[in-house]
Amino acid sequence: MLDQSRLMENWIGLKTLTRKEVVRVLRIWPQTLVPPVITTTLYYIIFGNIVGSKIDKAGGMGDISYMEFIVPGLVMMAVISNSYANVVSSFFGSKFQRNVEELLVSPLSNAVILLGYMAGGMVRALLVGAAVLIVSLFFTEGLVVSSIWITASVALLTSMLFTIGGFINAMLATKFDDVSIVPTFVLTPLTYLGGVFYSINLLPEFWQNVSRANPIVYMVNAFRYGILKGRLDEKYIDINIVTAYVVIMLFIVVLFSAALHMLNRGVGIRQ
């Protein structure tokens, strides 16, 4: 009975924290939702239309246009950067303003606090991802999602993973500079080199192997597989879909455990 009441208490707390985070995303929509859509639209215009038309004339990506090839990668790029950015800025902001204490003094479990922030980041990432996907319809001749389940699950898992990354970054951050270091010097290079604009099979073997150490390659490829399955030439499928799921889930388990451990120890939030 007691455990049930605690479960209910935590469930209500999780809903409350998720609502708080979603309200934040929607309240500052010109900062959270619009810019990624504009940036990605520019990618569609420059890389898809202008550069892509030349690539298509030179043989393209098999049966699909270059634009269709880069759409999944650009959606993933938006999902990754927005899930990370949302949690890192929201949780660090709470630390900075000290309103994280509202959560720390409450009976909510640390897992619920982590899940609440993750949920907020995932909502933003998926909203942005959906918007970017819808915009792509203006640049493709009717983009068809081949497997809704693979597409949706990869987007969900990827956003989950990077919200945890953002949370860990926010816990360790002591100043605003620390919030932008990882996105600028780690995430952006890994994303650009993660097969968004090209198939890693086009690289020399050495760089193909190096690329396989980049976890973003697995997410971009799995998402591309979900959208273009059956239409994408075999030689442009860089990663086996099962391997991709295993890698993504492994990262989620490891990062979630690390974040929870840090939260239990009060790293960055308790003296």
Partner: peptide, 20 residues
């Protein structure tokens, strides 16, 4: 130590929610 960008009632509603 409340969120400066949240409404007065929102802050109270949330705090109550955090206590289940």
């Amino acid at each position: 130590n409340f969120n400066q960008f949240e409404g007065v009632r929102q802050i109270l509603d949330q705090q109550a929610g955090f206590y289940g």
